[in-house]
Design a protein around this nucleic acid. Structure first.
Length: 857
RNA sequence: GGGCGCUUAGCUCAGUUGGCUAGAGCAUCUCGUUUACACCGAGAGGGUCAGGGGUUCGAGUCCCUUAGCGCCCACCA
């Protein structure tokens, strides 16, 4: 007996009607906070990679949130004490650049405003972005602990930043030096090596007559500050000049250069002679150090030539180049000019060409032995991955990591932008350096001398590199730090493996060396980039971008999340398009309707604690399938194979539960004792919702409410693994096969689905009732005796249907050919002696089936 | 210049350590109001797994090679 109106579930699931409310309920429950979980551990921590300051959620963030929430919800359901710590990054250069753009539109700039007012403006902008980010993160269903939200520029995290700086300074790992750096003239700041990007450009290669040599260069103006000339040691042409100091006249500008040899010089390229400008080329700077060349700075931080540029002093680089080349042409010193393609270095935040120049900056020494440890930062960072203590998924990125780390140079950490952590260094009038935690402390150390704080700020990645522990209260020995460090997994995009992941490893291994675990995390899971349907990068200018919030409005968060999870392999880029999301919206609706049907079908909606006793083959089958599913999904999720787990769930839910079990349940229910099916339906549905929850948290939680437990699905129990009866799977496959064949024959013979033609069936494994089910699903009338029609067979059963269309000749030929090849295979001695028993058995079985099929024609 | 990845149905992709007549979703075609769902159901068509060679009883899967596409790294002035 069906009870009427016991549930209130509309025909179609409209995500928009539920999601915000459900999120609010979760948040109010306090269950995002591990302190409120019943769990006694173990702890499981993820730190949310802080989104940048533009404040708009794009698909990359949406994907990251989907993966991280999936991991954390799975672990919470597993009973772990889960902490997912959210937060934001001040994103120094990115944010400052963004605000400067806004100021430019308003017709002003940061210098006009002054440092304090400018910082107020940025702060205002950041507050707005943070609000947007928080809202959007909630929209995605992220079950992160908002009570622990962190911000890199907060007072707490600034303490950690200063502590790290001071410790490194005292250990000699941070030093100030006049070295060559990447300078962005637009940002007015240095950049780290990996913050420089390269763009191919059409350049010109100038061949300049240069004393006894000809020197080729793309930047003639830098020749004004040359202090050396390099040739290959084996190059016979120039032997007589090697080791000499020459005075060179360049259109009246005199320079002194030392001639030296280096095997890096390619005698085949250009003229085989390289003019060295140590102050403005990274390579030449290294030459200068190696060969003790003088360093003459020619170009200033504002991109203009200094006094050393002689009559070109004060000119902008490009103007100076033009004039200098014109002068060289007048003095007949330009031999030729060739078109040339090379890589232009540009700023990764504003695309401005980088000017390499020497400057007094702060650096982290990566190749210096740590006091008392005989190891460098670089070595520490390499070892922890090489030993397998930190695992990178997918593994191939470990190679990329090694290569980058091995070739790392000292890291320039001082920036001349205003937005960021001030460097905790003060100078006295006589230029003594004082490194201190606070100004008060610095003043004490200065013993009455007047002090000024360094004007520079720290590289944004310096503070980000502390993220996994600065957010937990470090350097204080907090309970959170003790309980939740290290992170179990760091989930992020492969594009910031160097910027962020590598630096977190470096800093953590050094700063936490005395802790019981110095790793920032145990596993790094790297996801790929989201691209459009043609595999192109999504961008505003191309207009091919998909706005995740639009998709959520249209299809719901669960559908969007599924579209980002299923089909995504770790480290591989993925294409996304609206049709795909729509497909998963359809699935979410299917799950809804499955639940709606089950709830409508059963006498009473209640939780079933233990596995119900199956009555029919179909009952046994669905329980076996479900147990298999639970085992496989668990195993996949443990291995971070989200896509595979999702596909299996999808397949079970739609192709097994809905298409077969529910349809057969409709037929079998009236024949069996009241409630026997109810138990199985409820048992499976409830657990299926748990398995789906990490993927589609909203719809599963909504459906779960119908069980009226008073609790949340979010903290339910993950299903335990059970044994799977494989024989049942095999027998049910036979039943399915019969049904399919009957439908097939009917369709081929143009028999209307509603036309119940006669059918005769026998089987070694299926019961009379099972065959009745076959007949009903195939919509045929079961006869007691054979009839003259089309014969067919499966592994354990055979049948005959009242239809005349037989196998075509072509079909017969294909089958005969198959049988022939299988017979040959099974008779092949090397096959029989080499192949595993199971494979041989399988092959024989398939051969028998095929023969059976042909015989029944 | 080095390194890595990709190439499977019209499209987007699965295919564990080699072992069903290579699968799914979308799209296409045919049929269907069987009281959960048309955001649905039943069925069909469509692939010399980029090309070539090798190892093996057996290759989409392993090895070599060619081609095309993509990404990362690199100081050729």
């Amino acid at each position: 007996m069906k009870k009427e109106n016991k549930i209130d579930m509309p025909k179609a699931y409209e995500a928009g009607n539920y999601e915000d409310q459900i999120y609010q309920d979760w948040e109010q429950s306090g269950l995002f906070n591990p302190d409120n979980l019943k769990s006694t551990g173990p702890e499981f921590t993820i730190s949310m990679p802080p989104p940048n300051a533009t404040g708009v959620l794009h698909l990359g963030h949406a994907a990251a949130l989907a993966y991280e929430d999936l991991i954390i919800r799975y672990q919470r359901l597993q009973g772990k004490k889960t902490l997912w710590l959210p937060g934001t990054d001040h994103a120094a250069i990115a944010t400052q650049t963004k605000v400067e753009k806004i100021l430019a539109e308003e017709g002003t700039d940061r210098r006009a405003l002054g440092r304090d007012k400018f910082l107020d403006k940025v702060q205002e902008f950041v507050a707005g972005s943070q609000d947007t980010i928080r809202k959007q993160t909630r929209k995605m269903g992220a079950s992160c602990d908002w009570s622990r939200e962190a911000y890199t520029l907060s007072n707490e995290l600034s303490v950690a930043v200063n502590e790290a700086f001071i410790k490194m300074y005292n250990d000699g790992l941070i030093y100030r030096g006049n070295r060559i750096v990447n300078w962005c003239p637009r940002c007015g700041s240095t950049l780290a090596d990996d913050e420089v990007e390269y763009k191919e450009q059409q350049a010109r290669l100038y061949y300049i007559k240069y004393g006894p040599f000809t020197v080729a260069t793309t930047r003639p103006e830098t020749k004004l500050a040359d202090t050396g000339v390099a040739v290959h040691p084996d190059d016979q042409r120039y032997q007589k000049y090697v080791g000499k100091d020459l005075e060179i006249d360049l259109a009246g500008h005199k320079i002194k250069v030392k001639v030296f040899t280096d095997k890096e010089v390619d005698p085949e390229f250009g003229s085989g002679v390289v003019g060295g400008t140590p102050a403005h080329s990274v390579v030449d700077f290294e030459f200068a150090q190696k060969h003790k060349l003088e360093v003459i700075k020619l170009i200033n931080e504002d991109g203009k030539l200094l006094e050393s540029g002689g009559k070109y002093a004060g000119l902008n680089v490009l103007v100076a180049r033009e004039k200098f080349v014109a002068d060289l042409q007048k003095s007949k010193q330009i031999e030729k000019i060739e078109d040339y393609q090379n890589n232009l270095s540009i700023c990764y935040r504003c695309d401005t060409p980088i000017e390499p120049l020497t400057s007094e900056q702060w650096f982290v020494a990566v190749d210096k032995k740590l006091p008392g440890r005989k190891k460098t930062l670089k070595e520490l960072s390499l070892e922890v991955v090489r030993s397998g203590d930190i695992e990178i998924v997918p593994k191939r990125f470990e190679k990329t990591y090694y290569h980058w780390m091995e070739n790392l140079h000292d890291w320039c950490i001082s920036r001349q932008i205003w937005w960021g952590h001030r460097i905790p260094v003060w100078y006295t009038e006589n230029n003594e350096v004082i490194v201190a935690r606070t100004e008060v402390e610095a003043q004490k150390l200065a013993k009455g001398k007047k002090i000024t704080q360094d004007l520079d700020t720290l590289d944004t990645w310096f503070s980000s590199s502390l993220w996994t522990f600065s957010t937990l209260g470090w350097p204080d020995k907090t309970k959170d730090f003790k309980n939740f460090h290290p992170n179990q997994v760091m989930e992020t995009g492969y594009d910031i493996l160097f910027f962020w992941v590598a630096r977190m490893i470096l800093m953590s291994e050094y700063l936490l060396a005395k802790e019981k675990d110095s790793r920032p995390f145990k596993t790094v899971y790297l996801h790929g980039m989201i691209r459009d349907q043609d595999g192109k990068k999504m961008s505003k200018s191309k207009g091919n971008g998909i706005d995740p919030l639009d998709m959520i409005d249209k299809f719901g968060t669960d559908a969007l999340r599924l579209s980002l999870v299923i089909g995504a392999a770790p480290g591989a880029d993925m294409r996304l398009y609206e049709d795909k999301i729509a497909g998963y919206r359809n699935f979410v609706n299917k799950l809804w309707n499955i639940s709606r049907f089950i709830f409508g079908q059963v006498n009473e909606i209640k939780q079933i604690k233990t596995e119900p006793k199956p009555i029919t083959l179909t009952d046994k089958w669905i329980l076996a399938e479900f147990n298999k599913l639970a085992v496989e999904v668990t195993s996949d999720l443990e291995k971070y194979k989200f896509s595979s787990a999702g596909e299996k769930l999808y397949e079970f839910t739609w192709a097994k539960l809905a298409d077969w079990y529910l349809e057969i349940a409709k037929l079998e229910t009236p024949r069996h004792a009241q409630g026997s099916k109810d138990q199985i339906l409820l048992y499976i549905l409830e657990r299926l919702l748990v398995l789906w929850h990490p993927f589609t948290p909203f719809v599963t939680e909504v459906i779960w409410k119908e069980f009226k437990t008073g609790g949340f699905l979010m903290v339910a129990d993950w299903p335990q693994a059970k044994k799977v009866d494989n024989k049942v799977l095999d027998n049910f496959a036979d039943l399915q096969d019969l049904v399919t064949q009957i439908r097939n024959i009917k369709a081929e013979n143009k028999i209307a689905p509603t036309d119940f033609v006669d059918c005769y069936l026998t089987s070694q494994v299926l019961s009379r009732d099972d065959l009745q089910v076959v007949a009903q699903l195939g919509r045929v009338t079961l006869q007691a005796e054979a009839i003259n029609g089309t014969k067919f067979a499966t592994a354990h059963s055979q049948g005959e249907i009242n239809a005349t269309k037989a196998m075509t000749d072509k079909e017969k030929q294909v089958l005969e050919k198959y049988i022939k090849s299988m017979e040959a295979k099974v008779k092949n001695k090397s096959f029989v002696s080499n192949a595993p028993k199971e494979v041989i058995k399988d092959n024989k079985k398939r051969l028998a089936e095929a023969k059976n099929k042909l015989a029944n024609q």
